[in-house]
Amino acid sequence: MLTLIGLGLFGLLALVGGGLAVTLRDPVYAVLALVKAMVGLAGIYFLLGAEYIGAMQVIVYAGAILVTFLFVVMLINLSPADIPPLPRGLALYGSIGIALGWMLLLGYALTALMTLPSAQEARPEQDTSLPYLFGTLPPYRQDPLYRLCIPL
């Protein structure tokens, strides 16, 4: 439960950061907003138990890449005046798009639930013919989500 709450908080942080990164007119602010999103994502990685990746996310992404971005923005002296304003009606069309996207996603999920064998039934039986090695995928071939993405 704590994990879900943490996920919600960090997720919100990442979403807000991402949203600001793509909408703010000032490039410096946009980059800093992206840093915020990266930090949020790093938090989620920590929550999911991938501490090493989370650390890398903070060090490499937030620390190195985005600072390079910031450096370039300042090097070429990109000011808010150089950035055209966002198209009008973005909120309206954005909401319509989000609604449509959710409908699509729900429809997708429903279809998946109805047509695919339930996760329990399709529980992968251990394939003994192929040894499990690093980088091989066989263990998940029967996974419904895998089947959904790669229907072969």
Partner: peptide
Amino acid sequence: TLAGGIFSLGLLGLLLRRNLLLSFLAIEL
């Protein structure tokens, strides 16, 4: 779902931004 949301934001940024540098930002997302 969260990943999908972030991906959508990145796509939105790529579509909306008229600037090369900011498009890069969206690609990072």
